[in-house]
Amino acid sequence: MTRADTLARARELDRPQLAYLVRFPTAHGTGETDLTWAQIDHDTAWIAGRLREHGLAAGRRAVLTASGFEGFWCHAMIGALRTLRVTYGIAEAMGWDHRRTAVFHRELAPQAMIGLSAETVEGLSGAADVGEMFRSTSVVLARPTAVPLLHAVGVSACVLAPLGPALAIECPERAGAHVDAAAWRIGERDGQLTVAAAEGRGSPLAETPLGVVGRVVTGRCGCGSDDPRVLFAEANQLSPARS
């Protein structure tokens, strides 16, 4: 049997609906929820739309920094980059792998840096001028704790943040990080964020406190989206005014 025959046969096999058992930190320990392949397809389409707003398209290049345990959103992010036909490289988001981020940045000359962590930024700062590295990068999507570090050296970064099993991505309006309203209900209680599965998500998740400081903004964003937006305390520090 040839490889082509084997792949054709494999496509006919039943595939379990469950893709991941997502475990995530909460205010009271560890939470869990299911993630199906259908939900990954939905998340991929939503992320692709957010990246398209930032100008990512065929022929562009990106570097994605994420950790192995973040596969539940990283899988959809990679799918979105492939959907948009964006060439990408992947580095670990932990500080010890900052050199790989530097190599990809040098060799790919990417238009987008996605998922930069404070650990990566701090690691790079020991050997390079971070402002010089990223000021010319068209799109920088960074974790909330990394955003003020980047703003301080003149890098106009937007927020990308896992929120339990959800993902928040700031649009070019820089008015908060959007969360997919069709998939998640984001709320706040006593100044901290909560997450729950939306009715159409398919995998139940009751309202879960995340232990993350922030607030939720509703109403239509300047980009035209009605998805709720999250403002993080860390990311709001030293934030440059939008022109």
Results as ranks from 00 to 15, higher is better:
residue 56 L to Q: 03
residue 232 F to A: 05
residue 40 I to L: 06
residue 201 R to G: 00
residue 71 G to I: 09
residue 28 H to G: 10
residue 174 R to H: 05
residue 190 D to R: 13
residue 187 G to C: 06
residue 80 A to Y: 13
residue 181 A to F: 07
residue 5 D to R: 14
residue 8 A to F: 14
residue 122 E to T: 04
residue 198 A to H: 04
residue 193 L to Y: 12
residue 241 A to S: 15
residue 49 G to Y: 12
residue 206 A to K: 13
residue 216 V to I: 09
residue 131 G to I: 12
residue 111 Q to N: 02
residue 85 R to Y: 07
residue 221 C to D: 04
residue 62 A to E: 08
residue 69 F to L: 01
residue 14 D to K: 15
residue 169 I to K: 08
residue 28 H to A: 13
residue 170 E to D: 00
residue 95 G to E: 01
residue 70 E to F: 09
residue 105 H to K: 01
residue 218 T to F: 15
residue 233 A to V: 11
residue 170 E to A: 01
residue 141 L to I: 12
residue 225 S to F: 13
residue 168 A to R: 03
residue 80 A to M: 09
residue 103 V to T: 05
residue 154 G to Q: 06
residue 89 G to C: 09
residue 198 A to K: 03
residue 71 G to T: 10
residue 188 E to R: 12
residue 84 L to Y: 13
residue 32 E to I: 08
residue 242 R to M: 05
residue 212 V to A: 05
residue 118 A to W: 04
residue 175 A to L: 12
residue 162 P to A: 01
residue 95 G to L: 03
residue 68 G to H: 06
residue 222 G to R: 08
residue 219 G to P: 13
residue 183 A to W: 08
residue 239 S to C: 15
residue 34 D to E: 14
residue 121 V to T: 08
residue 136 S to N: 09
residue 18 L to R: 13
residue 112 A to L: 14
residue 205 L to Q: 07
residue 69 F to Q: 00
residue 192 Q to K: 11
residue 35 L to F: 04
residue 147 V to R: 12
residue 36 T to N: 02
residue 119 E to T: 09
residue 111 Q to V: 02
residue 137 T to M: 13
residue 133 M to T: 07
residue 57 A to D: 03
residue 47 I to S: 04
residue 27 A to C: 06
residue 100 R to V: 04
residue 69 F to E: 00
residue 118 A to F: 04
residue 223 C to D: 03
residue 182 A to Q: 07
residue 1 M to A: 15
residue 69 F to I: 00
residue 34 D to R: 15
residue 240 P to A: 14
residue 189 R to T: 11
residue 36 T to K: 08
residue 15 R to Q: 11
residue 37 W to F: 09
residue 122 E to Q: 07
residue 78 I to E: 06
residue 233 A to I: 07
residue 227 D to W: 14
residue 174 R to C: 02
residue 38 A to K: 12
residue 1 M to T: 13
residue 61 R to Q: 11
residue 74 C to E: 13
residue 62 A to H: 11
residue 73 W to M: 03
residue 242 R to G: 02
residue 65 T to Q: 09
residue 171 C to W: 08
residue 123 G to Y: 05
residue 191 G to L: 06
residue 181 A to E: 05
residue 222 G to M: 03
residue 195 V to F: 02
residue 12 E to F: 09
residue 152 A to W: 13
residue 113 M to W: 12
residue 125 S to H: 10
residue 49 G to C: 11
residue 129 D to I: 03
residue 88 Y to L: 14
residue 213 V to G: 01
residue 83 T to I: 11
residue 157 A to T: 12
residue 129 D to Y: 08
residue 148 P to F: 11
residue 30 T to V: 13
residue 217 V to W: 15
residue 159 V to Y: 04
residue 220 R to S: 01
residue 11 R to D: 09
residue 184 W to F: 07
residue 77 M to V: 05
residue 159 V to P: 00
residue 76 A to N: 07
residue 16 P to R: 15
residue 202 G to S: 03
residue 166 A to N: 00
residue 89 G to Y: 14
residue 194 T to E: 01
residue 19 A to T: 04
residue 138 S to C: 02
residue 88 Y to R: 13
residue 100 R to I: 03
residue 27 A to Q: 11
residue 93 A to T: 11
residue 52 R to C: 01
residue 180 D to A: 08
residue 208 T to A: 00
